[in-house]
């Protein structure tokens, strides 16, 4: 799946680059030149997000991570940078990014406090020891605002806050092979084995607005082609404030790697 996703991604990048190059060549117009003359630059960028949504640092309840997959999460972004001063060392970046963030994990936990609410309002709470599979995928619009610093002609750093508005999200999974202690660690012990699983779906409890900080590096490999890497560090949890089933705050922390076209 990953491979297919990557192939698709590179195909998209290729298409965008070819297209924009064609447009640009024909029409590297007065507008762009004028912009450049007042210190404005534009770029578009396609990338992938690799990372996870996790409590930080990992809580002691997590004993083992059996598998982790970043899944295929893409981003498409347009940025404008305004450079200041004579030397144009410093500037401001404003952008718009459409992106997905996701992951799939399989972990073993010990004495993990949980509470789930059933369709009919039934509540079960207790402490789980055993396997937990989790799938997260969120689609969002993100607006980054960053200070930029030009190290040299090719290399640019940026750092600043971002705000994301989620349009769609899925956080679900199941617990398996383990046992639940009802209410607290001294409660009745119920073993789950073989194909007994308990599924959960907290998609409705995901937050709409996420924010965080991003720090990136942008390298102009050729005149128009840029390669970039950004760390996207979420500062609020992905779940709504009043949601306490997952007792840890889950922060989205992702690396965005992308290729862009600079006009």
């Amino acid at each position: 799946m990953m491979k297919k996703g990557l192939a698709y991604f590179f195909a998209c990048v290729g298409a965008i680059a070819v297209h924009t190059a064609a447009v640009a060549q024909e029409d590297y117009t007065i507008g762009i030149r004028r912009s450049a003359s007042v210190g404005l630059e534009y770029e578009i960028r396609a990338g992938i997000n690799i990372g996870g949504t996790s409590p930080l640092p990992l809580p002691v309840e997590i004993r083992q991570i059996g598998s982790y997959s970043p899944t295929f999460c893409s981003s498409i972004e347009g940025n404008a940078v305004k450079w200041f001063g004579e030397r144009r060392k410093w500037g401001m970046l404003l952008g718009l990014r459409i992106e997905t963030k996701g992951m799939e994990t399989d972990a073993r936990v010990k004495n993990y406090r949980m509470e789930i609410v059933g369709d009919g309002g039934e509540r079960i709470k207790g402490n789980w020891t055993g396997g937990v599979r989790t799938k997260y995928r969120g689609t969002m619009f993100t607006v980054p605002v960053a200070a930029t610093y030009r190290i040299n002609k090719r290399l640019r750093l940026d750092c600043g806050p971002y705000i994301s508005f989620a349009t769609d999200g899925d956080f679900s999974g199941h617990v398996y092979e383990g046992y639940l202690r009802e209410n607290d660690p001294t409660g009745d012990k119920v073993v789950f084995e073989d194909d007994r699983i308990a599924t959960y779906d907290f998609s409705d409890d995901l937050r709409t607005v996420q924010y965080g900080l991003q720090a990136g590096i942008n390298w102009k490999a050729f005149k128009h082609l840029t390669v970039s890497g950004s760390l996207l560090w979420g500062l609020n949890g992905i779940f709504k404030k009043d949601f306490d089933t997952v007792t840890f705050t889950m922060y989205p922390v992702y690396m965005n790697i992308g290729f862009g076209y600079a006009f």
């Binding site: 690799i50 930080l56 997590i62 598998s67 982790y68 970043p70 690396m255």
Partner: peptide
């Protein structure tokens, strides 16, 4: 932590910087 190779970069970054490991 096992995973696809592509995951190593951010994991290493997060891992070394923020103690992202099993306690």
């Amino acid at each position: 932590i096992q995973g696809k190779k592509i995951a190593l970069l951010p994991l290493l970054m997060c891992g070394f910087l923020f103690g992202y490991c099993i306690r």
